[in-house]
Amino acid sequence: MSLPGLDRAAVIAAGGADFGLALADVRDAFALLRAGEAEMPAETSVALGAPDLPGRAYALPASLGGRFQAAGVKWTAHRPAPGDGQPMITSSTIVNDRRSGLPLGIVESALLTAMRTAAVSALALESLMPVPLRSAAVLGAGFHARTHLEMLAALHPGLERVLIWNRTRSKAEALAARSWPFPVAVAASPEEAARCDAVLTCTNAKEPILDAAALRPGRLVVQVGYHEVSFEVIDKADHVVVDLWGEFRLKSAKSLFQMHRAGRFPEERVAADLGTVLAGGFTPTPGSLVYLSSFGLNIFDIALAARVIATAGASNSAPTTHQDRSDWPWL
């Protein structure tokens, strides 16, 4: 049986870059997980490359019922650095029908990963803001930062102010110079950016760049990246929320999970997961400082991929093959 493949162009044509659809997918996936109609086993990985130039490939399986009825796996390779000019990270998702087991398709999933990550942040802006959302800051100027700015433009075009901060200022300036529906400026420091109502941290920083002194009550901090938020920020938060408190807390490099393993954050301090928030089980105190650790769940990858494959099939889109990233405007 042949397996239809969708490259980036086909994914976008099938609605893969639609934030409203991604937001609905993530919201429904949370509801299915809460209802016991979704499962997400732990990831597995294998080594890539030579011992002195290591890489790793990860398999992230999940299945969902509801309108998705899909089971699949996202396969992501973090390549060693061979200097061949090719992407350092490649990602594809294969999806089967959950009921019959028949294969439905395979998609290039780097864009979908960024979309589902930004959709989780969008849910946080909907449900966890301790004050009315008037301004937002994005830390970083890479792929996820750009996708978060696109999310803000699509879902919150009326923002009064958006700030961008990046270690390399020229990259932030280039991003700010694009056409946006709201005023965009480059912040001189993370501290200046943190004055906004919502702070979306989208960097690959291995050491904190946002500390507690920069934050005041009435802020929402959404951590998308690795370790750009200090333990002191998390300590200072009135409410700590997670997308899910899972086994990945035992090995993830995210700030909150590092803090937990260091014995400085007990599980009881988690105010809620996003599924509970969406079900109406938690509302932040007005004017409080709220912190969300966004890990990114396998079920979202399968949900978005299943929806895109179904849309492509319904519109009789021709199967396509994978291409390099050089012609992809999102990068």
Rank of each mutant, 00 (worst) to 15 (best):
A198I: 13
T201N: 12
G140A: 07
N166W: 09
A172S: 13
W180C: 13
G142W: 07
L125Y: 05
F182R: 13
S91M: 14
L123W: 05
C196V: 01
V120H: 02
V95E: 05
L200I: 15
P217C: 00
P87I: 01
A122C: 00
P130L: 12
L155S: 03
A118K: 07
A137S: 15
F182P: 05
F143M: 06
T168P: 08
V131Q: 09
S179H: 15
G105S: 02
E173C: 08
A153K: 00
L200H: 02
R146Y: 10
A205R: 06
A193T: 11
L125H: 03
P103S: 06
L128F: 06
V162L: 13
L155D: 04
L123D: 04
V162G: 11
V186Q: 04
I164D: 11
G105Y: 02
A145Y: 03
R161W: 05
A194D: 04
I209D: 00
A205K: 02
A110C: 11
R99D: 13
M115N: 02
A172F: 11
A119K: 03
R219T: 08
A205I: 07
M88A: 15
M115P: 03
A188N: 05
I94N: 01
A194H: 06
A110V: 10
R169N: 09
E191N: 05
G158L: 10
P208F: 06
F182I: 05
V221L: 14
K206R: 14
T117F: 02
E108R: 15
R116G: 04
A124P: 09
S100Y: 13
V120Y: 01
L152P: 04
A187N: 11
E207G: 03
R195Q: 14
G142T: 10
L152R: 13
V184S: 05
P132F: 11
E191I: 03
P87G: 03
V184L: 11
A114V: 04
D84S: 03
K206I: 10
A213I: 07
A137E: 05
L175Y: 14
L200W: 03
A141K: 02
T93G: 13
A136C: 11
L163Y: 08
V138L: 14
A154Y: 12
C196W: 00
F143N: 02
T168C: 07
T203M: 00
A213F: 09
R219G: 09
L102T: 10
L220A: 06
D84F: 02
T201V: 15
F143V: 09
R116Q: 07
E192K: 06
T201I: 12
F143H: 09
T113L: 10
A136L: 07
R167I: 08
S127C: 08
A188G: 08
A136P: 14
D211S: 13
R99P: 00
R195P: 04
G158H: 12
D197F: 03
A177Y: 09
P130S: 14
H148P: 01
A124C: 15
R216A: 14
P87K: 07
V184N: 12
